[in-house]
Design a protein around this nucleic acid. Sequence first.
DNA 1: CGACGGCTTGAGGTAAGTCAATCCACGTGG
DNA 2: CCACGTGGATTGACTTACCTCAAGCCGTCG
Lengths: 254, 254
Amino acid sequence: MANPWTAKMEQFTTFSEEDRRRLDDLASLRRQHYEPRQDIIREGEHSPECHLVLSGLACRYKLLPDGGRQIMAFLVPGDLCDAEIFILKEMDHSICALGPCEVAAIPGEDVRKLLLDRPGIALPLWWGTLQDEAVLRARIVDLGRRDARQRIAHILYEVLVRHRMVDATADDSFDWPVTQTDLADATGLTTVHVNRTLQRLREEGLIAVEDWRVTVLDRAGLRDAAEFSPNYLHLDRATKDPRSVPGKRVEGLI
Amino acid sequence: MANPWTAKMEQFTTFSEEDRRRLDDLASLRRQHYEPRQDIIREGEHSPECHLVLSGLACRYKLLPDGGRQIMAFLVPGDLCDAEIFILKEMDHSICALGPCEVAAIPGEDVRKLLLDRPGIALPLWWGTLQDEAVLRARIVDLGRRDARQRIAHILYEVLVRHRMVDATADDSFDWPVTQTDLADATGLTTVHVNRTLQRLREEGLIAVEDWRVTVLDRAGLRDAAEFSPNYLHLDRATKDPRSVPGKRVEGLI
DNA sequence: CGACGGCTTGAGGTAAGTCAATCCACGTGG
DNA sequence: CCACGTGGATTGACTTACCTCAAGCCGTCG
């Protein structure tokens, strides 16, 4: 996977060669490796650089007074962990690598410079944050109005789509270094109930889980089980610039 | 209440006279009135202008295939409804006025011009969207890991704080044109259960509800019931510019 | 080998849901 | 002035999806 950051944004726009080169530079400047279960940034901290997931799976989470944990979002390659550090004094939640992760640390200063030099980049960047926000809203709908089976199906289907968005070679499976306890903390359920619900999705022939990898066996079935409606990902390309290269956008994602 | 938009952003920064004047102009240019239960913008629509709540209470919501509704956020004066229209082709959710609302319709073009003319406004504007996003995450924690009493207490306490943020004269009560059915759709509960839970909060002497107005009788008690932690609102002012007027920020919010 | 983390299973409990009726304030039309 | 309809709040009786507790299983690793 070349640069998942540009790949993600190219669902929305087409970059000039120079734009893409500058983004690639930023993404390869300071590469970091995180071990499974290692925090990338913690609640209350501030960092002069923001973090971009290059490979692996991470999550946004918050710890509760009673020791509980709520996972608010899964981060796939191409997602920014903490764009808020440009503005806010400290993080109001933490980010943790679930499996082994490659991460680019991007100095805030460089992003500011890039936005000045290459004004065409601001919009795709903003689009990315708006998509992230829409993903949060989708989670709210899940937690508020759907049962366990729908919640889990929705998360899995969404992660599949978001993976395929940044990796045109991906098939219907993806790495999933997520314990059932993690999934419980993301869906607002208990481990026990997640276990029984996953069993059911497997029995129904919708998914298979093996060796920390999920395979979607019946894409339409899983989509229906999740009542998945893709509009919130805003994958309809906005710019219709006739000069632009047609190629990059991944088709047939949903 | 003068201009709730600047009042909100002044929790974060201090504007120059000229900045404030320009913002005031935008907020008063095209004033609209919405009746209770009237949609301000609907899922699937696009609008050339974005909407700012000047007075009243509105909500972000999404309709589900089965006819259900999930309210994802309450909008108080000073909140932008649909900043995404600058970027995205269409809304992925709807906004509805809960009570009578005064709304400013701000042409996207004017915002772009303002950002170019007055660069100092970009950061406070961005801060606003980041706060909105943090409010969404708080809702996820609520829905995922808290029981009915905590959820309702948290929403009420948060709305109180956000009101006080934009209205220094506000006491411990606020307009609440929200039916128990609305509150059920926001908390992921049923009307029946919301009813019993509200009764309990009243019996405990934490709140009183009368004539579409909530009065918080025991602020500390409600805060504890909600396990409210204010850090996600990022009310610690970031800029420490010594030239700035000290006055505008509202103290003792929490 | 034992310890451990993650998965699985069973039995029993509870917060919240469902269904259905009643009450009350209101607005409206005859 | 009253009968009526309506939307919202309230209540009771019953059901259920999900939780709790507790044990057992299995592969991995030191």
